[in-house]
């Protein structure tokens, strides 16, 4: 018993230290441009990915010239190549592309044929570089929630296969803690989107949508458990639901890599890379959040064990009467 308390204490201490170090590192050490944007996200001259935010002058084929930067929150949902038809060829100056998306407020939703011209005065980069530092908390939170839901999957499978209360306790605890991290990821992402894209949420974006579904699934998981009798069929049902629900994790992770999405891809992608300093701070954040997860998970399982113990005592007392 004492040993467990000691482990809890050390975990909590480490978590606090790492979180503080991460905050300081994100604020003072990490570069203001956390990602090498010219290769990661947005179009410059030789961009070859699917996502594009054009900086510079484009020309409507009907003849009107307009600068996309003049349009607030221009979002390009789909880009296909009119000239070459070859996705690997990339966009070069003067390439004609079809841009399907919202060019608010002037153009409306329509497929437009536009020409991209290079604008040397317009540097590549983020609209709101400082708020991009939320990246060092958003990504670790999302990763930790994936880890937590992975633990739910493993523990649920073990519970169905072998039985045993501890698996159920671990699955429940991990799901609840994971839901907290998932909420942090969703909310921090929405705040960043407001600063960078100009709005909180985009329902057309598969990444955002699939993560929202993942969030709903584990809200449902926790709701199934809430107020449920602990030793009836609920743990088994929850285990099945946890296994089914985990299917949303790979969908959420891969969605922005499979389908066109505005969500930046940094890790495990061919789209770009982190600078060494940013990568170091990101790793620090992942370690810090994993420690926070471990601490909360350990405390949550302790609470659940006490609940089960108290229910056992209650039953004994009732039997004695």
């Amino acid at each position: 018993m004492e040993k467990r308390k000691l482990i809890d204490f050390v975990l909590a201490l480490l978590a606090v230290i790492f979180v503080i170090v991460t905050v300081l590192a994100a604020l003072y050490y990490a570069p203001l441009e956390p990602l090498d944007v010219s290769t990661v996200l947005y179009h410059q001259d030789d961009y070859t990915g699917d996502d594009i935010r054009v900086k510079g002058v484009v020309q409507d084929l009907s003849g009107t010239e307009f600068a996309l930067e003049d349009i607030t929150s221009a979002v390009f949902i789909d880009v296909s190549y009119a000239d070459s038809g070859d996705l690997d060829a990339g966009i070069v100056n003067g390439t004609t592309v079809y841009v399907l998306g919202r060019l608010e407020p002037d153009v409306g939703i329509a497929a437009r044929e536009v020409e991209i011209a290079d604008d040397p005065d317009e540097p590549a980069g983020w609209r709101s570089p400082y708020s991009a530092k939320i990246f060092y908390f958003h990504v670790p939170a999302a990763w930790t929630s994936f880890l937590a839901f992975g633990v739910v999957l493993v523990c649920s499978a073990a519970y169905l296969w072998k039985g045993g209360q501890k698996w159920d306790t671990w699955a429940l605890s991990s799901a609840e803690v994971g839901l907290v991290f998932c909420s942090v990821a969703v909310i921090s992402g929405a705040l960043w989107a407001k600063a960078e894209w100009g709005y909180y949420w985009d329902w057309n974006d598969t990444k955002l949508f699939s993560t929202f579904v993942l969030w709903l699934i584990f809200i449902a998981y926790v709701a199934i458990r809430a107020g449920a009798v602990r030793h009836e069929s609920i743990p088994r049902v929850a285990a099945i639901f946890g296994i089914l629900g985990f299917a949303a994790v790979p969908i959420s992770f891969l969605s922005s890599r499979i389908w066109t999405s505005l969500h930046p891809n940094v890790v495990a992608t061919s789209q770009g890379h982190l600078s060494a300093e940013a990568g170091a701070v990101l790793m620090l954040g992942v370690v810090a959040f994993t420690l926070v997860y471990a601490t909360l998970f350990s405390r949550r399982t302790a609470i659940e064990r006490s609940v089960i113990e108290i229910e056992g005592i209650k039953e004994q007392l009732e039997d004695a009467e």
Binding site: S210, V213, L216, I217, I219, A220, A223, I224, A226, G227, A228, V229, E232, S233, I234, V237, I240, F241, L244, G245, A248
Partner: peptide, 23 residues
Amino acid sequence: GMTIAAKTRQSLLQIALIPLIVF
């Protein structure tokens, strides 16, 4: 069938079903 045993059966069915059928 999953939600029979739960106490808050009715709201639970919706919250458990909708994420599975959205897509």
